[in-house]
């Protein structure tokens, strides 16, 4: 099962490291990362595999959302099906 983690916020040192660490902590395998910095806004999309995840998904979504708030970032972890169903026929 794949999820999409999106991170949007003001660019600073350690965003990628912080989010990756969280993924490792909960047994989530990062498959693909794309990131861009527009002016000073940082935007990162991670595609991850959660088949070996060691918490349940809704807990993880909450954890990431709280982590985002602490760091001043907007972080959303969502199941990939929502994007597939919305953008593919």
């Amino acid at each position: 099962m794949k999820i999409v983690i999106s991170v949007i916020g003001k660019d600073c040192v350690g965003i990628l490291a912080g989010v990756s660490n969280k993924c490792a902590e909960y047994g989530i395998n990062i498959i693909d990362v794309s990131q861009s910095v527009l002016q000073d806004m940082f935007c990162m999309i991670m595609i991850c595999d959660i088949s070996a995840m060691n918490v349940n998904f809704s807990e993880f979504a909450d954890i990431m959302s709280v982590y985002g708030q602490e760091k001043g970032l907007s972080i959303h972890a969502m199941h990939e099906d929502i994007f597939n169903s919305m953008h593919k026929i």
């Binding site: 794309s34 999309i45 994007f83 953008h87």
Partner: peptide, 12 residues
Amino acid sequence: MIETKDILETIT
């Protein structure tokens, strides 16, 4: 593969 712009569109 899901495109970045689609992901951002959904989130927006």
